[in-house]
Amino acid sequence: MTLVLVAALVLVGLLCSLDLLLTVGVIKRLREHTELLSRKGEATPSLATGEEVGAFSATSVDGEAVTDTMIDTETVVAFFSTTCGPCKEKLPKFVEYARSVPGGRGRVLATVIGEPGETAPMVEALRPVARVTTEDASGAMGEAFKVMAYPVVLKVNRTTDGRLLVMADRVDVDRPAVAPV
């Protein structure tokens, strides 16, 4: 009887070890797939780093002209949509990030995509920290930056030869633009 009990206990131990080994393998594989899927979901929502920004001309909600030619130093450019859940979640973090951008409001450009009556809450949140434009999904700003998904936060700058390029296509808005002194 004792011998049967010991054999059964060893068998159960081996089965549990095998199960644990398989579970660890499945968890590792799930992590790899999650990483692949997250990269695929973020694939080119707009121009990538190093790509040239197209020409654009718009008017801010405050009546200021906003054109590609006026950008002469590093500028943060963001696109938010009124129908985008992640945009609504990211907006407060972006506003906090924009407050820390050197040069202030003049170095931050935000575009809100949506129907005129629906853009007001986002515009009001962005207005103190950015020059804000509004447009529909086929507007000049979106076309110039080839925006296909929202939210998008980029850094752009003019090169020595005068071209306006995307310097960073994935800006981490969870950290300040500059480290506090």
Rank of each mutant, 00 (worst) to 15 (best):
L20C: 00
L164G: 09
R158T: 05
A177R: 04
G41C: 06
G117D: 09
A120N: 10
E143H: 12
V12A: 14
A48R: 15
V12T: 12
L109E: 02
N157V: 01
A98R: 06
T133C: 14
D172V: 00
V153A: 05
L3R: 10
G162I: 06
V61L: 12
L126N: 11
P92Q: 00
L22F: 14
T159F: 12
K146F: 11
S100P: 08
V4N: 13
K146M: 12
T75Y: 07
V132G: 11
G139V: 01
V123G: 04
S138M: 11
V66E: 13
L36H: 04
D68L: 02
L165C: 07
T73D: 11
V153K: 06
S57L: 01
S38F: 03
M122N: 06
L164E: 07
R175W: 02
K155R: 15
V53C: 09
A125T: 06
A137F: 15
R29W: 12
G106P: 08
G114P: 13
K93L: 12
E52G: 07
P176L: 05
R170N: 10
G50I: 06
E96S: 13
V181A: 14
T34L: 02
T2I: 07
L18V: 09
A65H: 10
K93F: 10
F80P: 14
A110C: 09
L126R: 13
E135M: 03
T44P: 03
G117S: 12
L11E: 11
E42A: 04
V181C: 00
S57R: 15
V24R: 03
E96A: 13
D19L: 14
T111A: 13
L109V: 01
D174C: 02
K88F: 04
L164I: 07
V4H: 14
A65T: 09
R107W: 01
S138L: 11
L18K: 06
F145W: 05
G54A: 02
G85K: 09
L154E: 08
G50C: 04
V108I: 03
K93M: 07
L30Y: 02
T119G: 06
T69A: 15
P180C: 02
Y150C: 14
A144T: 09
P45T: 06
S38A: 07
S57D: 00
A8T: 10
T111N: 15
V129G: 11
T59P: 03
M148S: 12
V61D: 06
V10G: 03
T82L: 05
A179F: 00
L3C: 04
A168H: 08
D161W: 03
T73E: 13
V26A: 15
P86G: 05
I113T: 14
P102S: 03
D136P: 01
A137E: 15
L21I: 00
D172C: 03
L18R: 11
R31M: 01
E74T: 11
F80I: 06
F80K: 10
L15P: 05
E124Y: 09
L15M: 12
G13M: 01
G85S: 10
T133W: 08
V66Y: 10
V129Y: 15
G13I: 01
R31G: 02
A137V: 05
E35D: 10
L11T: 13
G142S: 13
